[in-house]
Amino acid sequence: MKVLKALVVMLVLGMAMAAYGADKPVKVGFVYVSPIGDAGWSYAHDLGRQAVAEMDGVTTSYVEAVAEGPDSERVILNMARKGYDLIFATSFGYMDPMLKVAKQFPKTSFMHCSGFKKADNMGNYFGRMYQARYLSGIVAGAMTKTNTLGYVAAFPIPEVIRGINAFTLGAQSVNPDVTVRVVWTKTWYDPATEKEAAKSLLDVGADVIAQHQDSPGPQEAAQEKGVYSIGYNSDMASFAPKAHLTAPVWNWAPYYAKVVDSVRKDNFKAESVWPGLADGIVDLAPFGPMVPEELQAKVNGVKADIAEGKKKVFAGPIKDQKGTLKLADNTAATDNELLGMTWFVEGVVGTTE
């Protein structure tokens, strides 16, 4: 009888623990578009994965340098077939391949970074990096002597265009005479190409170089020229300590832990989320020693205002390159307008193609 009672107690405890996800093991996969040693986008995501791997009962795995398109579908499909409970795909071009696989594996949870398509078991997420871009623009606008800023850009998609615009608006907020010259590389990770693009901007007078790619190539080009740079994704100061002013950076660990925990507790929801400075997902890297304390204080003040909702980055009046009013005074861009942004603000030199 005692044995029977003990078995019943163990069964009840086991059911309770399962209900709360206390001991439920979770297998999580990550798909990266570039090498994790790039010091950029994939490196930042992998720092989040490493934090998740420390959670009890959680095992993680990743595949790096996965090309967008059919190759990514193969990798995601392979993870789903191997019984992964949750899969994160961390590049825009993985969206349709992940959606296709998600429909084949309805019991697996999928999350796509930077996209907009969803399914019952597939959500999407991103961070309001444009907020940190705006702050880095303030630094660049205050530090330039030529009033020409260079921007090495990846692909002409809303995410990148939005970042360029935010950077420009931040620079213009402290220096109305500044212009931002854009060069497209059509790469996410190609150190040589990205460095050459930066050099082309330096040749036309840019004395601060910003970027939207994963390699530190543009940072190195700026240092070699003896001018300043703004990094991206992670703190790239070690690659160009004499040039690096700061960088908009990612901190994915809190969000990844939250999603993994939801899967562990069987309450995963295929949501669309877009957190920002207030949530700690985006931030600025430490300032370089060449950034004056007064400027640091100004940037930190604006940062606090944005985080508290007192300031909107895209608040009118804002005109496009042609001088057409896009946002009237006392109005702010909606999330849908931001997510679909395909035009440059006044002061950007370049095309959205």
Rank of each mutant, 00 (worst) to 15 (best):
Q50H: 01
I36S: 03
S42P: 13
A53H: 08
V33D: 02
D46K: 02
S34P: 05
S42V: 13
D46V: 00
G21R: 01
K27I: 13
D56T: 11
G37I: 08
G48F: 00
P35D: 10
T60L: 07
M55E: 02
H45A: 06
P25G: 08
F30R: 02
G57Q: 07
P25N: 13
M17D: 10
V58C: 05
P25I: 06
G57E: 06
D46C: 02
V63K: 15
K27S: 07
G29Y: 01
A22W: 15
G29C: 03
R49M: 06
L47M: 13
E68G: 11
Y62M: 05
G40N: 06
Y62S: 11
S61P: 09
A51H: 04
K24F: 00
W41K: 11
V66F: 04
A67N: 14
S34R: 03
Y43L: 07
E68L: 11
L11W: 12
L47W: 00
Y62A: 15
A53T: 02
K24V: 14
M15C: 14
S61H: 10
A44K: 12
Q50Y: 01
A53C: 03
P35A: 13
L11V: 13
M55K: 06
G48K: 01
S61F: 14
A67C: 00
L47E: 09
A44F: 07
A39W: 02
I36G: 01
V63Y: 04
Y32H: 15
M15Y: 14
A67E: 14
V63A: 12
G21T: 10
G57Y: 08
A39T: 09
A65T: 11
V33N: 02
E54G: 05
A44Q: 07
V28I: 02
A18C: 09
A22L: 15
Y43H: 14
H45E: 02
Y32S: 09
G57H: 08
Q50T: 12
P35H: 04
V58N: 04
I36L: 10
A44C: 07
M55T: 02
L47T: 08
A22G: 01
A51N: 03
V28C: 05
A67R: 11
G37D: 10
D46I: 00
L13Q: 10
A18T: 11
G37V: 05
V31Y: 03
M15L: 15
L13D: 09
A16S: 06
A51M: 05
G37A: 09
A39G: 07
V52R: 02
E64D: 14
V63Q: 13
A39M: 13
A53P: 03
D23H: 11
K24M: 03
F30P: 03
A53G: 01
S42Y: 10
A18W: 10
V31H: 06
V66A: 07
E54R: 03
Y32K: 03
D56F: 14
Y20I: 14
V26I: 15
V58F: 05
M55H: 00
P35F: 05
I36D: 00
L47V: 13
P25W: 05
V31K: 10
G57R: 11
D38Q: 14
D23A: 12
W41R: 13
A18F: 03
K27G: 04
W41A: 07
W41M: 05
F30T: 10
A39E: 05
L13Y: 12
A19P: 04
P35N: 12
Q50L: 13
E54V: 08
Y62L: 11
E54H: 02
H45D: 08
T59R: 10
